[in-house]
Amino acid sequence: MPLLIAMLSLLPGPVLAHPHIFIDAKFEVVAASDGSISELRNVWSFDQVFSSSVVVDFDKAGNPTLTPSELKAVGKTVRDSLAQYGYYTNVTSNGKAVAMAKPDAIQADFKDGSLILTFSLKPEQKTFLKGNTIFGIYDKTLYTAVDFATDNDMTVSGANMARCKRKVIRPNPKEVMAENQAALTSMFFSDPKGTDYSLLVATRLEVQC
């Protein structure tokens, strides 16, 4: 099993309380002319430690970089392995979860020592930006930390988006822990598939239309 799959895969238990992979992300909600979600655009830049491990795992030519064919293999591996985790993309429309279809492809690149993945997701069913829609890009297992450096890294675009209000929510982890102290122990130790804590502390984009 390639190292990339192993490191991105779901691992059991409280070991996952501390992230081991770090992503600097950019996220864009693109609206169609009818007010539905056209696509969700993602750009992920991985930390150099993890990126170097991917080079070791996929470099078949014996050089310290990845060829176009090797990068294509990285993209295919991530596309297949992260499907069961929803590509760390969690969307709700008025409190109801919105399922995402598998992306057509994931484009991989390697720049300045970092692996960069670019891909777009589309809802499995047409979903309108009506009422309250929340977009969260996070790993429920807490093994991978997804960070948005500024609020401008979570954006909206497309027709009629001027009618909507955009808000980036950045919970304070210390406040979250203080408010949920009684429940956190059971969250970490009783749910091997991830915890509610990841949702509580995740940076997310709220769009109200």
Score class of each variant (00 low, 15 high):
residue 195 T to G: 11
residue 174 K to A: 14
residue 185 T to K: 15
residue 16 L to V: 05
residue 62 G to A: 12
residue 196 D to Y: 10
residue 45 S to R: 15
residue 189 F to Q: 06
residue 33 S to H: 04
residue 55 V to Y: 01
residue 185 T to I: 13
residue 161 M to Q: 11
residue 193 K to I: 15
residue 104 D to T: 12
residue 171 P to D: 10
residue 100 M to T: 07
residue 76 K to V: 10
residue 201 V to Y: 00
residue 147 D to R: 13
residue 195 T to D: 03
residue 69 S to Y: 09
residue 187 M to A: 10
residue 168 V to H: 04
residue 167 K to R: 12
residue 25 A to W: 03
residue 82 L to Y: 03
residue 126 K to M: 10
residue 14 P to A: 07
residue 110 F to E: 11
residue 51 S to H: 02
residue 185 T to V: 14
residue 117 L to T: 05
residue 113 G to K: 05
residue 185 T to M: 12
residue 64 P to Y: 02
residue 37 I to F: 05
residue 200 L to G: 05
residue 203 T to R: 10
residue 152 N to A: 09
residue 182 A to N: 14
residue 206 E to T: 05
residue 52 S to A: 13
residue 41 R to H: 08
residue 44 W to N: 09
residue 121 L to M: 01
residue 56 V to A: 15
residue 118 T to M: 12
residue 129 L to C: 09
residue 205 L to I: 00
residue 15 V to I: 04
residue 79 R to N: 12
residue 11 L to Y: 05
residue 186 S to N: 10
residue 173 P to A: 02
residue 9 S to P: 10
residue 95 G to A: 08
residue 112 D to Q: 06
residue 20 H to N: 13
residue 94 N to S: 14
residue 130 K to P: 15
residue 176 V to K: 09
residue 206 E to D: 12
residue 41 R to P: 07
residue 192 P to M: 10
residue 79 R to K: 11
residue 90 N to E: 05
residue 196 D to H: 04
residue 169 I to W: 10
residue 25 A to G: 15
residue 71 L to E: 00
residue 136 G to C: 08
residue 26 K to D: 12
residue 2 P to D: 09
residue 93 S to H: 07
residue 203 T to L: 04
residue 5 I to C: 07
residue 3 L to R: 08
residue 24 D to F: 03
residue 110 F to G: 14
residue 61 A to R: 12
residue 187 M to I: 02
residue 33 S to I: 10
residue 150 T to D: 12
residue 196 D to M: 14
residue 199 L to P: 08
residue 171 P to Q: 02
residue 170 R to V: 01
residue 128 F to G: 08
residue 106 I to A: 09
residue 96 K to M: 13
residue 75 G to C: 14
residue 24 D to V: 02
residue 104 D to E: 06
residue 42 N to G: 04
residue 186 S to R: 14
residue 66 L to I: 05
residue 105 A to P: 13
residue 166 R to M: 07
residue 192 P to D: 05
residue 88 Y to M: 09
residue 110 F to V: 01
residue 78 V to S: 11
residue 54 V to A: 06
residue 57 D to C: 02
residue 79 R to Q: 15
residue 174 K to Y: 08
residue 205 L to H: 00
residue 80 D to I: 06
residue 191 D to A: 15
residue 2 P to M: 02
residue 205 L to Q: 03
residue 173 P to I: 03
residue 175 E to D: 08
residue 36 S to E: 06
residue 103 P to I: 02
residue 136 G to I: 00
residue 21 I to F: 06
residue 105 A to M: 09
residue 122 K to I: 03
residue 115 L to Y: 00
residue 133 T to E: 01
residue 47 D to C: 06
residue 206 E to Y: 03
residue 129 L to E: 11
residue 194 G to D: 03
